[in-house]
């Protein structure tokens, strides 16, 4: 049962990096592209479905690995606060940037998206360095690695979603290229997770709790997967929405 819930945690973490990775990556690329509205529009219909994977991760930590949750979050207090504030700023940028007309307003919140995305990538470096016990300085370096991986993934996503447009010059537009960049984005979390597997497993909740969780959550997994696939089927092509 612990193995099953470790598997769920691992899938959620890898999925978060592979999916939210391109949203954060596109955010990082915004200062370097002229077509910001098109780039934001490309990720817009995916963001809500992608970022929620991290909420799921928090939930699984809380329910299935409560000892780990307390240890990790409180142990990495400043980094986790930085991660949350970055996330909030990025989301606020997305929700607000088109709510008023005017160049200044939109540029300000676009900058918030970019700054929040950078904060997210760097904080993830800090979190991963923290859980592997690496020194803080190494966390900054690892954050840069995460940021580069996400930016690469974001660039591949834009090439796939907006083929031929200025926002994504030069990248291959195939689904295979996108899958490859997703693997690159997920690598920074998958590698340390495999290394730490036994330590995570030691902190699992007792079997009564895991049974209840399995009973309640597993029947809904097909619906969760179907909803995620539906998002991709609906928004993979066609006009770029203008709500965000």
């Amino acid at each position: 049962m612990e193995i099953l819930w470790f598997g769920i945690l691992a899938v959620l973490l890898a999925g978060y990096f592979a999916l939210e990775g391109f949203d954060i990556g596109v955010g990082l690329l915004l200062p370097f592209t002229a077509e910001r509205d098109r780039a934001v529009g490309a990720i817009a219909p995916f963001v809500l479905a992608n970022e929620v994977w991290l909420v799921g991760i928090a939930g699984v930590l809380f329910g299935a690995f409560p000892m780990l949750e307390g240890e990790v979050l409180s142990g990495l207090y400043p980094v986790v606060v930085g991660l949350l504030v970055s996330w909030i700023v990025r989301d606020a940028g997305l929700w607000f940037r088109r709510r008023l007309d005017g160049e200044g307003w939109r540029s300000f919140w676009t900058a918030a998206v970019a700054a929040g995305s950078l904060g997210l990538a760097l904080s993830w470096g800090g979190v991963i360095a923290g859980i592997t016990g690496a020194p803080a300085l190494l966390g900054v370096g690892y954050g840069v690695v995460v940021a580069v991986a996400f930016a690469f993934h974001g660039w591949a996503f834009l090439a796939w979603r907006l083929p031929g447009e200025a926002a994504a010059q030069g990248a291959a537009r195939t689904g295979r290229a996108l899958a490859l960049s997703a693997a690159v984005a997920a690598a920074p979390i998958v590698v340390p997770l495999v290394a730490l597997a036994s330590e995570v497993l030691d902190r699992a909740a007792p079997s009564e709790t895991l049974s209840v969780l399995s009973l309640m959550v597993l029947p809904v997994v097909p619906l969760m997967a179907a909803a995620q696939i539906w998002v991709w089927r609906v928004f993979r092509r066609g006009a770029v929405p203008t709500f965000f």
Binding site: G59, V60, A205, V217
Partner: peptide, 14 residues
Amino acid sequence: GDVFGAPMAIETLV
């Protein structure tokens, strides 16, 4: 956490 975490986890996922 072994008790309180369960409804919180179910809330986030389900």
